[in-house]
Amino acid sequence: MTLLNYLLGRRKKTATVAKERLQIIFAREHADRNGPDYLPDLKKDILEVVAKYVTIDLDRIQVHLDKDGDMDILELNIILPDKQPEQHKVAVHS
C-alpha cells in the first residue's frame, strides 16, 4: 500500500507528528526549567487580569520567557478577538 498512500497523499506521517509534538512540549518545558519559580503563578495572574476585560481564547495566548544578557524578558502575546461578544466571561487555567 506504500505507493498508493504516497500517490493519494494520505495523512501526515506519524514521525512528523511526533517531532512537532515534542518541539512544542520542549519549548514549554525548557521555559519552565530556566524560569523563576513564581513564573507559573505570574502567568496565571496576568491572564486573569486580561480576562476581566476581554474574552480570550487560551489557544491564542503565548507566553515566552527570554533571556537577553542579564535581563529576563517576559513576552506575552494575546490575540484579541475581532468582535467583542456581549459577555466577557472566561475561565483561566494555569
Binding site: T2, K13, T14, A15, A18, K19, Q23, F26
Partner: peptide, 16 residues
C-alpha cells in the same frame, strides 16, 4: 520504519 515515516529519524532526534 524511518523511511516509512513511522519512526523519528536520526536528524529529528539530534534536532530535538
Amino acid at each position: 520504519r524511518v523511511e516509512q515515516g513511522e519512526m523519528l529519524s536520526i536528524e529529528d532526534i539530534t534536532d530535538l
